[in-house]
Design a protein around this nucleic acid. Structure first.
Lengths: 168, 168
DNA sequence: TATTGTTATACTCTATAACTATA
DNA sequence: TATAGTTATAGAGTATAACAATA
């Protein structure tokens, strides 16, 4: 924007735009690779990666939904796709009959293992290659702090004025 | 991921995840506000903002498509929506009869002006409030460098330059 | 022939609300 | 009642390919 912005100085505005552009391009590139190399969307990759990372390779649906931003029905949809491909299984939890435990299969682990090197390579190439010196450390520090702040500031519960989007 | 990754050390991996989470949460919050306050998607906001920022408030469809990542048909779709709402107009270019000049209307400018303060406020609140000292400067520096690098490294088939990939 | 843009179409994804069942 | 998950459905958005018009 060329006119003076009400709440951000030009350096902040520039940093904001840079952040959005960088993350957008990175996500685009990474998503492209995941689809080409493993027929996975980024969301599906995240779900599988979280499961691989979880103890015994399993998590409840709710826990998965908490990590990925989407709605429960959205997660059900994605889990259905992954299950259909044999990458995960779903079974009622022994502890709580309401819950569903999602477990990565060997095929799921294999796919992540197959896809991960190329994934990581793209990230390195696009994001870390141009960095030097303390760049990584400072970036880590700032983003970590921002993330903590964001996690403590729930984005959905804070609806200042939703006014008229009531489509009933 | 808990096991050692092939191409990234744990600090790099952490920074990558933090970047993706931060940008995702930020985009989510900002998108929510734009829809609630102006009934605009983030893409539509970007299109309007680019036009407002352009000399005489107009750009060719192709120039707009270059800025936003999407396909031409996607831009046509979005432009159709914005035109229907009276936020932009489309007219054949005098210079090149093939081109279409997109122009922001006063209503479009008004809407951006209406939405911008709240937009910027959310960004400030989520992204810049938790920063201190040199955070902003270092973030700016790193992201700027990464952005330059990314722009110079086209993600192989993302930019539909002059050629299209019909082989394969 | 190459470029600009639109259209037709199919598909993916996400959100909402209603629903079942368990706690 | 509250929580966990699914389903039905509807809508937004995107990509591809065919198309017309102009350069």
């Amino acid at each position: 924007m060329s006119d003076p912005s009400p709440g951000l100085n030009s350096e902040q505005l520039g940093a904001y735009f840079a952040l959005m552009e960088v993350s957008s391009l990175l996500q685009y590139a990474v998503d492209e690779h995941l689809r080409a190399d493993g027929d996975l969307s980024y969301v599906q990759f995240q779900i599988l990666a979280r499961l691989v990372d979880a103890p015994e390779g399993r998590l409840r649906m709710t826990d998965l939904a908490d990590g990925v931003v989407y709605s429960r029905s959205g997660l059900t949809y994605q889990a259905g796709l992954l299950e259909k491909r044999g990458l995960i299984t779903r079974a009622p939890s022994p502890d709580d009959e309401r819950s569903v435990m999602v477990t990565v299969t060997d095929a799921g682990r294999d796919l992540i293992a197959h896809v991960l090197p190329g994934h990581v390579e793209r990230v390195r190439q696009l994001l870390f290659d141009p960095m030097k010196g303390r760049d990584l450390a400072t970036l880590s520090g700032v983003l970590g702090r921002v993330r903590e702040h964001m996690r403590a500031t729930p984005p959905r519960s804070a609806k200042p004025r939703a006014g008229r989007n009531r489509a009933e």
